[in-house]
Design a binder for these strands. Structure first.
Length: 365
DNA sequence: CTTCGGCTGACGG
DNA sequence: CTAACGCCGTCAGCCGAAG
């Protein structure tokens, strides 16, 4: 049944993307537990797991886990250093395939894309399913990678559907099936609910999405505040009106890194930040973007993050000496306020971004 | 009163 | 014996100051 009043949204999520890219480049890895690692360089195994293949997950290796811990749990797994330029290239190819087939797309991360297929599917879920299968097939044929696809009435439902069956899944949640699909799921599965909210909901005796939907909206607002309470109330019903639309520009750009040794020396930390700033400034220049605000981020030995920031009176390109001076004074100010801080990682962020004069947006063509 | 600058925290890939 | 720990991005909320 065609119902043009409703959108049909697809969410494509590549399966254990980085690990799958590595396996594609080296078929000997097929069927083996593979963990893609981001090494901090501090010592041989310091760092975190970025992506674990399904075989590695079966051994208990999870993304975000310290590498040392993963190796203790699963010494037999294969640990690889992340190769981001490889993943970026493959991502670009996959995005092109999707964009060639659908007019309304939105890249959500390096390995996820939303598609508004209302037009191509004429509002018909059966057509949408066929288009999704064809897209999966093309991605597999061209890139030798599998993905999981969710189809639903909006981005929220589509994303939760893509998560429902993986890897290589396809889950369709028709408009009228939304409640049936969501209700039994644990609250943590609702995109936007993390550990903290899960805990707070548990205190209310709420563990499933259906229970959120059944809760008093006044109570949700009381516990979680106006905005978040209303969001919970709607999201638990599968209500979400976010459009599928590419963003013109990022809101911020940042680089962060781990120092070889912990430091309490403002000059040393500022120099480290200044080096990272060069790469951010290069990225911004390349994108034709100027920035209004610079921030210094400091992660202390206890892993807590602190920031210091300053808004400039006018947009900066990055080559001005004043920016580096500002980085130094932000770091200095932090240490005046926190004289005994021990810094482990440090970074810089630029925000309040705007297109530089004479730079065309993609949409001007 | 609203807005802004600065900062923290939750969340997600 | 335990704890072990990356990097990038979005958004909301809070606070005090400014308009």
């Amino acid at each position: 049944m065609i119902d043009p009043r409703h959108r049909i949204i697809l969410h494509i999520d590549m399966d254990s993307f980085y690990a799958s890219c590595e396996r594609r480049e080296n078929p000997a890895l097929a069927g083996k537990p593979v963990a893609v690692c981001i090494f901090s360089g501090r010592d041989a195994d310091s760092g975190a797991i970025s992506t674990a293949s399904y075989e590695a997950r079966a051994l208990g290796v999870k993304s975000g886990m310290p590498i040392k811990l993963a190796k203790k749990i699963a010494p037999q797994a294969i640990y690889l250093k992340a190769n981001f330029s490889l993943y970026q290239g493959i991502s670009d190819s996959i995005m092109s395939i999707a964009r060639a087939r659908f007019k309304a797309t939105q890249q959500a991360s390096i390995d996820e894309i939303y598609i508004d297929a209302s037009f191509e599917a004429s509002g018909d879920y059966s057509i949408a399913e066929k288009l999704a299968r064809e897209l999966k097939a093309e991605i597999f044929e061209q890139e030798m990678l599998t993905c999981s696809v969710g189809i639903g009435r909006n981005k929220l439902v589509a994303k939760m559907a893509s998560d429902f069956q993986k890897p290589d899944g396809l889950t369709i949640v028709r408009f009228e099936d939304t409640e049936k699909f969501l209700s039994p799921l644990p609250v943590k599965k609702l995109v936007g609910i993390g550990p903290k909210t899960e805990e707070a909901l548990a205190k209310e005796g709420i563990t499933t999405i259906g229970q959120i939907a059944g809760a008093e909206s006044a109570r949700l607002v009381e516990v979680f505040g106006e905005s978040r309470g209303r969001w919970l109330f709607d999201a638990a019903r599968g209500i979400d009106n976010e459009p599928v639309a590419e963003r013109d520009m990022p809101a911020q750009m940042s680089r962060i890194g781990t120092m070889k040794k912990d430091s309490q020396d403002p000059a040393e930390i500022a120099a480290f930040c200044a080096g990272l700033f060069e790469t951010v400034a290069d990225d911004a220049r390349e994108a034709g973007i100027a920035f209004g605000t610079i921030s210094v981020m400091l992660i202390l030995a206890n892993l807590k993050m602190h920031t210091k920031s300053r808004k400039f009176p006018r947009p900066m390109s990055g080559s001005e000496p004043a920016v580096k001076t500002e980085i130094e004074s932000l770091v200095a100010r932090f240490f005046e306020e926190n004289p005994y801080a021990v810094c482990r990682r440090a970074g810089v962020r630029v925000s309040d971004l705007e297109k530089k004069e004479g730079q065309k947006s993609l949409f001007d063509y």
